[in-house]
Amino acid sequence: MKVQSPKSKIQSLRFGVGFFLLLILTICAAALLGSERLSFFDLNEQQQTILFDIRLPRILLGACVGASLALAGASLQSLLRNPLAEPYLLGVSNGAALGTMLAFVFFTQFEAARPIMAFGGASLATFVVYQMAKSRAGMNVERLVLSGVIVTTFLSSIIVLLTSLLDAAKLRSFTFWLLGDLSQATKSGFYLSFAAVIIGTIILMQCARALNLMMIGERDAFDFGVEIGRVRLTVFAASSLLVGTAVAASGSVGYVGLIVPHLVRLAIGSDNRLVIPFSALAGAIFVVLADTVARTAIAPRELPVGAITALIGAPLFIYLLRKS
């Protein structure tokens, strides 16, 4: 994997401003659309509540979830030198989902337990996949993806088992949630996710240079003075934090961590100092768009956002795979 330096600082700055404006534009456009029509020049009290208490928290939470998943995907792909590394495929999302479910079953009243246990589940899944993929000869790509698939399916079967044991009423809310659903967005949920995105971005940006070197090869990175073990641990912890909060807020929204970093690299090359922040912005845009479709396509009914991201993500991924 080649580390391309940006053609010039000005150009990357221009890209950054462009992406940021695009995100703002997307959020504004999403705020205009919804199952209820709002007359924006003359909002009455009821419409204000719809906009500020229902629609915007959901849009902003969607943006944070998208950013989190794309950040985790981008950094894991560089760290593991594997274009297929993605929270959903590696079992990290399922680990977080299982954690959230256990919190829901055992600490129903204690809402703060959900993101904490989601983080725990995500960390544990990451650790297990990494241990399974590691061999004496180092890490190989097929092994990693296979371990991811195994852990994912194993965790899904536990989730299915749990939902079967729960009674029918709870089952319904879980099956919807497992597909990725942003309808339960609250302001506090948004604040928590936003904090995680900021912390995650800062941590990962600190690792960006080291990740660039590690993409060439761990051996070379070591020779350049990169503390490989520490970088690895930091990236795993940061991505578990990001995926944990995202999943606790919205269930498993798939394909974001896979598609978004790929598209970003196609646009600006593979320098992580750019890929990481731009993935966050692009991930936010992608999920906000997908959720706008989920909210409006069959209004006043709703679709789960995860179904939309997968619907767009899977074909797009196959296209990218064939093109490369």
Partner: peptide, 16 residues
């Protein structure tokens, strides 16, 4: 008037 028997309803619509 909402289609299907047991729809998942948009909260915005529910609010009004």
């Amino acid at each position: 008037n909402v289609a299907t028997a047991y729809p998942k309803l948009s909260k915005e619509t529910a609010f009004v």
